[in-house]
Design a binder for these strands. Structure first.
Length: 172
DNA sequence: CACCTAACGTAATCATTCT
DNA sequence: AGAATGATTACGTTAGGTG
């Protein structure tokens, strides 16, 4: 995972969610959907989740892993001529920005999250689910929140360091 | 043991909301 | 317009199951 060894036992009993094992039937549907569109929008993922009786976040992870492992037609659109491509008829590549609705946290929800983050920036699935239950949002949203928080904290730290160096340069 | 793959991490980026 | 911040992506790593 990254540079730091997670090794903290003080994380939260059982760090990861137990590995989901899809049945052949489920896998068949997933593979079929992937072949039709490796980038399903949120509603498509949700529909799949209902269809194979699992959570949308599992679908998301599955598609991420599948895209990573199987090379497929990557539309980098660098290669494509943007002006001519406009003529593309009904195709429309559907995923016209169909995302999960941005959740807006109340200040009390944020307070809970921030407290939990201060206590420990890495939470196992059990802890995340508990938090999610407590503030009434999906567990996946909690996970995203922690990821973004960690990222932005790192960026902020790096910035602070650079500014300090910059000041030193200006003075020297 | 090696192999497969779900789960999960970071970094970058897209997109929405708010000032 | 720009700052904040939630959501999605690529890519790499880790852990749990199976041959």
């Amino acid at each position: 995972m990254g540079q730091d060894s997670p090794s903290e036992k003080t994380m939260a009993t059982k760090c990861r969610r137990s590995s989901t094992s899809f049945t052949e039937e489920q896998l068949k549907i997933l593979v079929q959907a992937f072949s039709q569109n490796p980038y399903p929008g949120y509603t498509a993922k949700q529909r799949l989740a209902v269809e194979i009786n699992t959570e949308e976040s599992r679908i998301q992870i599955w598609f991420q892993n599948r895209r990573a492992r199987h090379g497929f037609l990557k539309r980098t659109e660098k290669n494509l001529d943007p002006s001519k491509d406009h003529a593309s008829p009904k195709e429309k590549i559907q995923d016209g920005r169909d995302r999960r609705c941005r959740t807006s946290y109340t200040s009390s929800q944020l307070q809970t999250l921030k407290n939990a983050f201060t206590e420990n920036p890495y939470h196992g699935v059990d802890s995340r689910e508990q938090l999610a239950e407590e503030i009434g949002v999906p567990e996946s949203s909690v996970q995203i929140w922690f990821q973004n928080r960690r990222s932005r904290l790192r960026i902020q730290r790096k910035r602070g360091l650079e500014e300090a160096l910059d000041q030193r340069q200006n003075q020297g």
